[in-house]
Simulated scan of single mutants.
Amino acid sequence: MTKFDRNEEINGSDMCRTIEVAMVESSPLPPPPPSPPLKLSFSGDNCEVDELFLPPLNFAMVDNGVFRSGFPDLDNFSFLQSLNLCSIIYLCPEPYPVPNMEFLKSNRIKLFQFGIEGCKEPFVNIPEDKIREALKVVLDVKNHPLLIHCKRGKHRTGCLVGCLRKLQRWCLTSVFDEYQRFAAAKTRVSDQRFMELFDVSSFKNVPMTFSTSKRYK
């Protein structure tokens, strides 16, 4: 039997399943989000796609029970439901949109808002007190699983995550590398300076049982 004969025999079989795989183009910066999982339903020998789980812009896992992203919209709600979130940290001053608030209420998700203006250099003023208060929420495992987000998931979110990394004793090189992978061409020297000078000594006694970080100085 030739190769072509075998192909014809296989193609002529009674059972055939087709799985569609969504392909995305990769880019060097920022890292592309993980390929969104597909929710599948099975009926007999058929496999059909019911729903596409779409992560928000710049979505990534920070640590056990801690995630980061840009602003989630209606298309992202099904994906967020799959995370079983307990809390969301919102780092923008604007009111949370009504559809988003309804989603939080229907899923019993608590909203922590720390309004930080999204200013551009050289007029950047990162309020350290708000970053500290937000960091306390992140460190409290009772708030996990938790999503941190601003508008694009780059600067404000990047600063908060960078301060968390310092507390996890990451070296500055690794802290800046992670920040730059999400900020890409919009990397801000002022953000990196803020993370460099951020004093984590007041958090030294805070338990971090959720952390699996192994990057130490």
Rank of each mutant, 00 (worst) to 15 (best):
L74G: 14
D75Y: 08
N76G: 10
N76F: 05
S78F: 13
F79H: 11
F79E: 10
Q81E: 15
S82E: 06
S82W: 02
L83D: 03
L83M: 09
N84K: 12
L85Y: 07
L85H: 02
L85G: 11
S87P: 00
I88N: 06
I88L: 14
I89P: 00
I89T: 01
I89V: 15
Y90L: 12
Y90A: 11
Y90G: 12
Y90H: 12
L91C: 11
C92W: 08
P93N: 08
P93S: 07
P93Q: 07
E94V: 09
E94M: 08
Y96K: 13
Y96N: 06
Y96L: 15
P97Y: 01
V98L: 13
V98M: 10
V98I: 13
P99N: 15
P99S: 14
N100R: 05
M101G: 14
M101R: 14
M101F: 05
E102L: 15
E102K: 15
L104I: 04
L104A: 14
K105L: 11
K105N: 06
K105V: 00
R108P: 06
R108A: 11
R108C: 11
I109P: 07
K110S: 12
K110L: 13
K110I: 03
L111V: 01
L111P: 03
F112P: 10
F112S: 02
F112D: 02
Q113A: 12
Q113W: 00
Q113M: 02
I116N: 05
I116M: 09
I116A: 02
G118A: 13
G118Q: 06
C119V: 04
C119N: 10
K120T: 14
K120Q: 14
E121P: 13
P122A: 07
F123G: 05
F123Q: 12
F123I: 09
V124F: 00
N125P: 00
N125M: 12
P127N: 06
E128A: 11
E128K: 10
E128R: 09
E128D: 05
K130F: 12
K130W: 05
R132H: 02
R132A: 09
E133A: 08
E133L: 03
